[in-house]
């Protein structure tokens, strides 16, 4: 029995992202397309997002002009492709607080957000360091943090301390401290009768592409992502934890920046030129990618 459907929804992309950004050590190996996505989980009366993308009103044009980010579409447009409105979203799991994952808070007025407490507290520790440690504070938009404070004031921000099994029925959060960021987390969705045999991992930025979890030649040797404020070792340990949680089936670890997801799962391209990837369908749910 499958309770949850999962779709990976592209909302923007960089056509020529440096490969060493997604695969540690892949220097001088050219560029790859980097899709920007969030994940929709739907089932058991819940409408859940993993991350919310970046806020185009704040920095979209700057990013587009300077860093080659293309074709940003609003959550309203992106979610409409699968018959969901932003107002329908009741829960958001934030894998980490970088502006391209935590930026669109205000577009989801009815959602409660879940974030690791350490993502905030250790980032604040980093801020208290001398100026020469400024690199540790990158990619956090002060506007997003203010909006996060508003969420907290309104009781819509839940700070988690470590792993939280069954944060919602059949959904677990797992902490991955000092990896891509200080307080990253990833999500497991359990569809199986016993709770684990049909599980999916939504990896956030802990795994950018298949190669990170499956090896550069599919040889099974983990390769960390190209950006970490924590350690490469911790990234590999987090990857191994994910693999353990899905009975070591790498196809069940979903990297949202992987363009080749469309080759592995049913998908279609929207009128806006963005991909919709259908990872799994709950019992009774209709496909959003097949006619």
């Amino acid at each position: 029995m499958k309770d949850y459907s999962i779709w990976v929804l592209e909302y923007s992309y960089v056509p020529d992202y440096h490969k060493s950004g997604v695969i540690y050590g892949a220097h001088n190996e050219g560029y790859v397309k980097l899709p920007y996505c969030y994940v929709l989980i739907k089932g058991k009366g819940r409408t859940i997002l993993v991350d919310v993308g970046f806020n185009n009103k704040e920095y979209g044009k700057v990013l587009a002009d300077r860093f080659g980010v293309k074709n940003w579409q609003s959550p309203k447009v992106v979610l409409d492709e699968v018959g969901v409105k932003p107002e329908d979203v009741d829960t958001v799991f934030v894998t980490h607080a970088h502006f391209d994952h935590f930026g669109n808070i205000e577009d989801f007025p009815n959602a409660t957000f879940y974030l690791q407490e350490r993502e905030i507290s250790k980032w604040m520790w980093a801020m208290s360091l001398p100026e020469q440690f400024g690199w540790l504070m990158g990619a956090m938009d002060p506007g997003d943090i203010i909006r996060g404070a508003e969420l907290a004031r309104d009781g819509r921000l839940v700070l988690i301390d470590g792993d939280r099994e069954d944060v919602l029925p059949g959904i677990d959060l797992f902490a991955a401290f000092d990896t891509h960021t200080f307080g990253s987390q990833f999500v497991r969705v359990k569809n199986g009768e016993t709770g684990t045999e049909d599980s999916w991992i939504l990896a956030g930025d802990l795994v950018y592409v298949f190669d990170n979890a499956e090896g550069r030649d599919g040889d099974g040797v983990y390769v960390p992502v190209g950006l970490a404020s924590g350690s490469q070792t911790n990234l590999l340990l987090a990857t191994d934890k994910m693999m353990t949680l899905v009975d070591r089936d790498p196809t069940r670890v979903i990297p949202i920046h992987e363009q080749r997801l469309v080759e592995r799962f049913p998908s279609r391209v929207s009128e806006k030129g963005l991909h919709i990837v259908e990872i799994t369908l709950a019992d009774g749910e209709t496909s959003k990618v097949r006619q």
Partner: peptide, 23 residues
């Protein structure tokens, strides 16, 4: 940085039970 500090403090203060008070 100051804007981020104060915003972060508000976030942590909402969950001081987690030990955010010290930070």
């Amino acid at each position: 940085k100051i804007i981020q500090f104060v915003s972060g403090c508000i976030i942590l203060s909402e969950s001081a039970s987690l030990g955010g008070g010290r930070e």
